[in-house]
Design a protein around this nucleic acid. Structure first.
Lengths: 216, 216
DNA sequence: AAGCATGGATAGTGGCGCTATCCAACCGAG
DNA sequence: CTCGGTTGGATAGCGCCACTATCCATGCTT
């Protein structure tokens, strides 16, 4: 398959494909002459993944490159690959340590982690802190700066719901046989289900609000 | 309060505040002389909301202006204000109707809406379709284009979890007494809980994955 | 009266995700 | 074998966005 065919079959312009090649999001094709290369189904699949990450998952090109690099780093075992890939996903600005709201947000988050028995956040010793923990602190601090309550008890129902969702996520991932497929599926499903979740939440809010206020 | 104080108390540079004033995200201060204006606590609070929407919620400035305009449109009743504000939130690219995956995605989504008894998506007659429905279609289509399963049955657990979350959201909103406060709270909580949810999901995934694969 | 701060206007910056143009090499129809 | 059209590679440019820097007349402060 040549560039033009890759372009028509993926719906991505040749200029953009060249850009992705330059940026290392897509492997160069198999060189067949000095000025021509051959692409295969793997390139097509990869291109679709890139588009999905960038357009649906809104992941910056630089992060996408790191995520994809981790996904296929043959030197790492699958667990590390997944960890590296998820680590490379964008996770917003780091908490502003100068802001006192950050400190109380951290306490709230730690208490929540403790109550749930989660071990990837907070200061609880041997397990590493993942970037999502920083995201959580930043978001809680922003809420409390605005005067919205965000106590541990307020967050717990959300965390419980996410526990169920994470279990569903992993059930989906386990459908895949090989570790390679599982790692790619884990990343793709983590990223691509985010808009699904957010849109379902907005639909559910509209529905719940209709139910509660329909009479009025 | 003058510009400089508004700046120090909010942590936003005077240049950026002027930019927000220009863009209509912040009302002009009360003019006190030809070249000086006075700002109050309302400006400070509004400025914090703007920063939260833009930095935490990652909402583009243009959308934020529309959202804020809807929030304080005195000509509308609170329900309409909320609807307009949520409508103005960014909701990604519209589904690509040229893509056959969009058609099957729509069927899946409609079946889901039907099974859940939700009435703001799909073709089900009198209720309007909300933008979140388009977000959902786009995301499902992207997943299936990548070969990831996204049947109604796969989505249902996510939708059920979001039903619970929406109920929790509305419980939080109902803590506020006046309709004005409720409308602002609804928008702020919808937007600012998104990073909370996403980071909790990633933490829950890490935790669940540790539980499942710790032995290995 | 001196000197710095204020608010308003305007132009500029840096990053990002492409996109347009050019070019030599190449392929395939006639 | 020629010649129009295509290919991959390099480079520069574009449009958008969220600021940011500079300038200026005014005016408050001391």
């Amino acid at each position: 398959m040549r560039l033009a065919e890759l372009s028509t079959r993926s719906g991505v312009s040749t200029a953009t494909i060249k850009y992705y090649l330059r940026e290392g999001l897509l492997h160069p094709g198999r060189r067949v002459t000095a000025t021509q290369a051959e692409y295969d189904e793997g390139h097509l699949r990869r291109l679709r993944l890139v588009r999905a990450l960038i357009q649906v998952g809104r992941i910056p090109v630089n992060s996408a490159r790191e995520v994809l690099a981790a996904l296929q780093d043959e030197g790492l075992d699958p667990n590390r690959r997944l960890g590296t890939a998820v680590w490379a996903l964008p996770h917003g600005p780091a908490p502003d340590e100068a802001d006192p709201a950050t400190e109380t947000a951290r306490q709230t988050a730690d208490e929540l982690m403790d109550r749930l028995g989660w071990r990837y956040g907070g200061p609880s010793g041997e397990t590493p802190t993942v970037p999502a923990y920083g995201m959580l602190i930043t978001a809680i601090a922003a809420l409390s700066r605005l005067g919205y309550p965000c106590a541990t008890a307020d967050l717990e129902p959300y965390a419980r719901a996410m526990e169920r969702i994470a279990a569903t996520d992993l059930d989906l991932v386990e459908r895949y046989g090989t570790p390679d497929e599982q790692v790619e599926a884990a990343v793709a499903l983590t990223v691509l289900y985010e808009p699904v979740l957010l849109s379902l939440r907005r639909l559910a809010e509209a529905e719940e609000s209709r139910r509660r206020f329909d009479g009025r």
